[in-house]
Computed example of a mutant assay.
Amino acid sequence: MKFLNGLILAIALVAVAASCGRNPPRGGGPAVYVGGTVPQLGDRKPHVWRSGHPYGHQVHGIDISRYQGDIDWARVRNSGVSFAFIKATEGGDHSDPSFQRYWREAGAARIPRGAYHYYYFCRSGAEQAAWFIRNVPRERGALPPVLDLEWTNSRTCPRRPSSVEIKEQAEVFMRLLTQHYGQRPIIYTTVDFYADNQLGTMNAEFWLRSVADHPSARYPGQRWTFWQYTGTGIVPGISGDVDINAFAGSSADWARWLQARLSR
Rank of each mutant, 00 (worst) to 15 (best):
H94R: 12
S95F: 12
D96W: 08
P97C: 04
S98G: 14
Q100C: 15
Y102V: 00
R104P: 14
E105G: 04
A106Q: 07
A106H: 10
A106S: 09
G107R: 07
A108K: 13
P112K: 05
R113D: 04
Y116H: 03
Y116L: 07
H117T: 03
R123H: 12
R123G: 08
G125C: 02
W131R: 02
W131I: 03
F132E: 00
R138D: 12
R138N: 11
L149E: 01
E150H: 09
N153C: 11
S154T: 09
R155W: 14
P158F: 07
R159A: 15
R159I: 14
R160S: 13
P161Y: 04
S163M: 10
K167F: 07
E171G: 10
V172I: 11
F173D: 00
T178S: 09
H180T: 10
H180Y: 15
H180D: 14
Y181H: 05
Y181T: 00
R184A: 09
I187W: 04
Y188D: 00
F193D: 01
F193M: 08
L199V: 07
L199Y: 01
T201L: 15
T201N: 13
M202F: 09
M202E: 02
M202K: 06
F206M: 09
R209M: 13
A212E: 13
A212C: 11
S216D: 11
A217S: 12
